[in-house]
Design a protein around this nucleic acid. Sequence first.
RNA 1: GGUACCAUGGCCGAGGGGCUAGGCAGAGGUCUGCAAAACCUUGUACGGCGGUUCGAAUCCGUCUGGUACCUCCA
Length: 498
Amino acid sequence: MERKKEKSHILKIHNTLSHKKELFEPINPPFVGMYVCGPTVYGEPHLGHARPAIVFDLLFRYLKYLDYKVRYVRNITDVGHLENDADEGEDKIAKKARIEQLEPMEVAQFYLDQYHFAMDALNVLRPSIESRASGHIMEQIDIVQKILDAGYAYESNGSVYFDVVKYDKDYHYGILSGRKLEDLLSSTRELDGQEEKRNSADFALWKKASPAHIMRWKSPWSEGFPGWHLECTAMSTKYLGKQFDIHGGGMDLMFPHHESEICQNKIANQTDTVRYWIHNNMVTINGQKMGKSLGNFITLNEFFTGNHHLLQQAYHPMTIRFFILQAHYSSTIDFSNEALIAAEKGMKKLFSAYDLLDKLKPSSSSTENTGILYQNCLHAMDDDLNSPIVIANLFEASRIINQANDGKTSLTQENINDLRDLFNVFLFDILGMKPTANDSMTDGLDNELMHVIIELRQKAKKDKDYTTADTIRDMLTQIGITLKDTKDGVEWSISQTK
RNA sequence: GGUACCAUGGCCGAGGGGCUAGGCAGAGGUCUGCAAAACCUUGUACGGCGGUUCGAAUCCGUCUGGUACCUCCA
């Protein structure tokens, strides 16, 4: 049955450019263009990758719920970025490749597959277009040429740099990060290629490859590789146009990456390309940023298997997703086992309440207002994607369901339909949660075996042989099977994290 | 040093000038052979100090502590 629900058209999102929540108005409704910075595929995906993927998946799902036609582009950085540590000027992917004696693209593909595996497990929808930097070298070269032609870049020893000082004279540099050019110029650093630049704040559009550099392409200036920030400008413009609605990414990318994109866009596209900049906050571990260079990161696979010294147990991908959605995207999330276990319990509570819906017997009268919850969730999503509030309302719904199940309150069929809608739309479609119950266990030999065991225990119970009954239950618990004696019979389930 | 931001009860985490989310944990109770689950009851927390106000956790100032970015990073 089609149930008419009023959808909102007052979505507000926080725009990093204005530091304010703004009404979301697409440039060309009903179409929405969204670009999000994706992973550099030279390492295993970790919790830090999960956050933006889930946050922008939430936005993607909500925009689709609002009936927008969304084109969501996420890049894969497989060209690699410059390194600035011991091996100056070396391409990260190329470096790793040399160590492992593999083709650079083989390494990139390997980690890309890992990324996809993890994202699928987290129920993150694939973007409309997942574009690879290596497949867009021509487009990047075109943009370098455009910026050169416009006079905002200069060639130096085969490399091309963006002239930030000139840009700042004509436009305002630093509008996203709030940084001032003079501050940047006064804090000069020892960087590779610094002597080639006119000013320390200038950034590379094209770099000439050193002889050791494996990944290289021909260009009018040198055999080399594109600058760090160019791929996003090239691919967003190619697939979303010179103006598009949303550009997302982690807060750590705000400067210099996104700031540089703004400069490149402005010159190459002759317009303000991005309407709304959205940034998710970081995941911390013991209050510290989780990062490759800090050596304190936990890969997603380690979370899923529990195979890491900081983890007390394995965590289902849905627990990770729920954990992330329980915080607003603009807050930092601090990792802890305690918080994850709490999230896991809460999540299971929601799932079992949803399962109960099918067993509820409708009454002719109602004591509950279920319609309000849907509105509350809608308002929460409209208010800058406030997923924690959505979850709070789902908990309220689960309380109503449990009370009705206990016979304390009564729900009409309409109430039950409302609640089912609420879970289907918000928990499953928009928050993107997926029940973790193992359905395959409800049929087949396993189920029949369980049936036998439960029957034996029931018999013992009937004979008041509670020692045997409890022994059976304890032994099952030991192998990760939980029994519940309910008034409708015995329920069994396999624990997720065994 | 500069820029951005944050400090909420045992833990996590919303909110945001008076109506004071939610989850987890804890205590008591109902139910149950016992458990489990569920439900009910129970928590007045917003870093310190000033200020604005009839009223501040919420606004302003300041101090303290913390994070991120300024160098590849989600």
